[in-house]
Design a protein around this nucleic acid. Structure first.
Length: 830
RNA sequence: GCCGGGGUGGCGGAACUGGUAGACGCACGGGACUUAAAAUCCCGGGUCCCUAAAGGGCGUGCGGGUUCGAUUCCCGCCCUCGGCACCA
């Protein structure tokens, strides 16, 4: 009898052996079909947490099973290594961000290796390595060349705690995505990427991804892009040469525009009020709104307030003079920052009109009922017929939209227009630990790109990182002062660094040729591996990373670097790891350290539990007892193999079907093949790891219950060997170390991942008999077994003769009999 | 408010195209082994009625519908989680 199951010993043994054999290294191969399996690379924050274990265990099951199925699987790992936590930790612990980062990478890499994950570590990348960020800078310069990167002064999100600008996507409910502190507004000059230019493509792509991506992620992305179709219309101002441009989604209500509103920040406000009696009051109002909390101001419940500017505009269709107001509910950043107010058909405008006694004019009449513009309190938003609309009267309002747009275009006072909620991506960060933006600011030449040959612009490591605020790079004169690449005169380097989300927007491309020296990617390798066939990661990146990565892929495609429009064919968003009803988090004190679990039970148990406790996309409730249970199962399998080792020496696998075997043995063989089928189907396509495991558990239970002493024959040994081998093969993607160890106990000298995935023999699966459920009026009343191929007539007769059925049908007229082949008979009585 | 998930035993979860609801696991109860306990192995279990067995009623958030038959399809609600939200 073999020694006790000792996970520590066997796991290290097999990890070493796999590494020595280079089992996970892959190269392009025209003979094999490829599969690019990617899990989101981690931020090296210190140690891995259960969320990582879950993410990477899910990936590893797929990677290993696909390899066994003969697929060429690219399964890489790396580090999203630039970012604020490194800098903050460095300040706090008086160390260097690079030091902190690389120490963490070392720790976390060894933790991932301890989990037995099948990565090709030769392809490891770290985004903070010059060999990587050189190409991040290269891509930035290409975008600069194409006008996709630009610099502007803008009102941006400012996190006072992190002392840096944030992109819109990085503000969650008014707070910083990283530190959770409230985000303010600040006028700052910085760099932007024109993601808005790709809004339509990003939107269209969402439709292509419906098969492979979760619906909710696509919905979030569509919401975020926020496309609105309508018209842009110019309103002339009485006594002024300038016009006010507005965007509306309801050109059909243009006749109902009875006043206009500008955002308080609108650049025209100052000139409009110049010389009016209202000037002081308006400017006071503008100042007042500017001081208000942004989050509060944009809340729906906030009271609408405004002031009259003293000026009038002309409704371009009615010719009426309508008052121009300034109000808090109109936002500068959406549309043109000005609106036409149609109180009869917009709830917000109606509330505003009622409050300030402004006129209401109904221009759409409902199919039934009346609208009274004097008393109505709910704006009419439904479809209807145009009234009070000149020559458009009588048209359906939807039809009128197009007609009015055509009219505006003909008169040159407006045009059909599309507006997006999506804003350009602000990428400047006023911090140190990021990828330097490779440009030079020259007093004579302006913004000058660093020549490609001079890349990378190295992030100097000997810069003191302090908490005093402002970019540490700006204080390093050796970094800042440079001669202009264009004119040779004195110039200053850009000291902002890039948002780390840029680094993570193309890392998956780099994995295909991680050490390539001539370009960010080797076209050959990209052609072979991209797109990513399956991407796995947390839902928290539904908009952020996943939107940015899609944008970058489209840019790379336009640059001719890649052939695909979308980077990730299929996306699996794994659920969170929950304990005591809340997400595991240090702040909540409910964290379970993966190291502790591995130390106590081994990596196989940790992986098994996390894959068994819940389907991958759902939240997983951590359970110490559940972990015990998973560990018990592995021990149970261990004992089963030890118990039968002697019996199996020299046993040959059964060859043909189950027909010649004794009944119970044939049954066992059938169960074995059924298990192969179930597990294979649960892993392929639908990622039901929990049910795949329960199928394996059932087979193990069957083996425990089988009386091998009563049927001690070479045949029995053969069937048993097959069953055990199948168990190990099927289990190997989940618990690879234990599987390989027991595989060796069964006399094999190779690793399971080198073996093909088992197949099931349809002949073995064929049932010797079918269980027929007998129903009367849809309720189960009895059961019946029949031989396969029993004619329907016979089954019908047996069902009617069945005494359990007769108990219910006695004295009743049989109205109908439904027979489902091999499954069920339902007798319908009156 | 709009959009998207999700409501199944004490708990995590099964049931792939409508066909035995509750697989598998946890917790629990019983038995075997043991001087005893732990470990292990075997058995049990939705709920109510019935002394028990046999048998039956009710059961997948609620109310209807379609169907021989509904956790599954349709209609109308309720609850819950997540996203967006004064977006013109």
């Amino acid at each position: 009898m073999e020694e006790h199951y000792d996970p520590q010993e066997i796991e290290l043994k097999w990890q070493k052996r796999w590494e020595k054999k280079n089992l996970f290294r892959v190269t392009e191969s025209a003979q094999k079909s490829k599969y690019y399996l990617l899990e989101m690379f981690p931020y090296p924050s210190g140690k891995i947490h259960m969320g990582h274990v879950r993410n990477y265990s899910i990936g590893d099951v797929l990677a290993r099973s696909l390899r066994m199925k003969g697929v060429n699987v690219l399964h890489p790992m790396g580090w999203d290594a630039f970012g604020l936590p490194a800098e903050n930790a460095a300040i706090k612990n008086n160390t260097h961000p690079a030091r902190w980062t690389f120490d963490n990478i070392r720790t976390m890499r060894s933790q991932l290796k301890r989990l037995g994950l099948s990565y090709d570590w030769d392809r490891e990348v770290a985004s903070c390595h010059p060999g990587y960020y050189r190409w991040t800078q290269w891509l930035f310069l290409k975008m600069l060349e194409r006008g996709l990167a630009y610099r502007k002064m803008a009102l941006v999100n400012w996190c006072g705690s992190c002392q840096t600008v944030l992109a819109n996507e990085q503000v969650e409910g008014g707070c910083c995505w990283r530190c959770g502190q409230p985000v303010g507004q600040k006028e700052v000059e910085g760099w932007f990427l024109k993601i808005t230019e790709y809004a339509e493509r990003l939107l269209k792509g969402c439709d292509e991804l419906t098969d492979g991506w979760p619906e909710r992620v696509l919905v979030m992305q569509r919401n975020w892009i926020g496309k609105s179709v309508g018209a842009e219309v110019s309103f002339s101002v009485e006594g002024d040469s300038e016009e006010i441009r507005i965007f509306t989604t309801r050109p059909d209500t243009l006749y109902g525009a009875t006043f206009m509103i500008l955002a308080p920040e609108h650049p025209m406000v100052k000139q409009l009020v110049a010389g009016t009696p209202q000037k002081a009051q308006v400017l006071e109002f503008v100042q007042q709104v500017a001081r208000e909390d942004r989050l509060l101001r944009t809340a729906e419940t906030t009271e609408k307030r405004g002031v009259f500017t003293g000026r009038y505009a002309l409704n371009p269709l009615t010719g009426d003079a309508i008052p121009v107001w300034v109000a808090n509910y109109v936002l500068l950043e959406y549309g043109t920052g000005a609106i036409m107010a149609v109180p009869a058909h917009d709830q917000r405008d109606l509330e505003f009109a009622r409050k300030y006694g402004l006129p209401v004019r109904v221009v759409i009449h409902p199919p039934e009922g009346e609208l009274d513009e004097k008393t109505m309190t709910d704006a009419y938003l439904e479809t209807g017929t145009l009234v009070n609309s000149g020559s458009f009267n009588g048209l359906g309002n939807e039809e009128a939209q197009g007609k009015i747009i055509s009219y505006l275009e003909a008169k040159n006072i407006g045009r059909g227009a599309v507006n997006y909620r999506l804003r350009d991506w602000g990428i400047s960060r006023q911090r140190y630990w990021g990828c330097p933006i490779p440009v030079v600011n020259c007093p004579g030449c302006g913004v000058v790109p660093v020549p490609y040959d001079d890349l990378p612009v190295i992030l100097p490591l000997d810069v003191p990182v302090t908490a005093e605020g402002g970019s540490p790079l700006a204080r390093d004169s050796r970094f800042v002062n440079i001669s202009c690449p264009c004119c040779g005169g004195p110039a200053r380097r850009e000291t902002d660094t890039m948002d780390t989300f840029i680094c993570s927007s193309w890392y998956f491309d780099r994995y295909t040729s991680p050490r390539f020296e001539q370009a960010p990617v080797d076209t050959q390798a990209i052609r072979y591996w991209m797109p990513v066939d399956q991407y796995i990661g947390g839902i928290e990146h539904a908009v952020l990373h996943l939107l940015y990565a899609r944008f970058f892929t489209m840019v790379l495609k336009d640059l001719g670097l890649i052939h695909v429009e979308e980077p990730f064919l299929r996306l699996l968003t794994q659920g969170m790891v929950i304990k005591d009803g809340a997400k595991m988090a240090k702040s909540k004190g409910n964290v379970v350290d993966p190291d502790a679990i591995i130390k106590r039970y081994g990596a196989d148990t940790a992986r098994l539990f996390i894959l068994f406790a819940a389907p991958p996309e759902k939240d997983l409730e951590w359970s110490d007892q559940g972990v015990e249970g998973s560990h018990r199962f592995l021990q149970r399998l261990w004992r089963l193999v030890q118990q039968h080792r002697d019996r199996l020496t020299g046993a040959d696998l059964p060859t043909n079907g189950t027909g010649k075997l004794p009944e119970s043995l044939g049954q066992l063989r059938r169960r074995t093949h059924l298990t192969v089928k179930r597990v294979t189907e649960d892993l392929g396509g639908r990622f039901h790891f929990n049910t795949a495991l329960s199928a394996i558990m059932e087979l193990v239970n069957d083996l425990y219950r089988f009386d091998f002493e009563a049927q001690n024959s070479p045949e029995t040994a053969g069937v048993l060997r097959e069953a055990l081998e199948v168990c190990l093969q099927l289990l190997s993607p989940f618990a690879p170390h234990l599987a390989d160890e027991l595989w060796e106990h069964l006399g094999h000298t190779s690793c399971l991942i080198e073996h093909p995935w088992p197949t099931w023999d349809p002949a073995c699966i064929e049932a010797h008999e079918h269980l027929i459920v007998l129903q009367v009026n849809g309720k189960v009343r009895g059961r019946l077994t029949v031989k396969p191929g029993t004619p329907e007539e016979e089954i019908r007769r047996l069902a009617l003769e069945n005494d359990r059925v007769q108990r219910w049908t006695e004295g009743k007229a049989v109205k109908k009999i439904v027979v489902v082949a091999e499954k069920l008979v339902n007798v319908v009585i009156g």
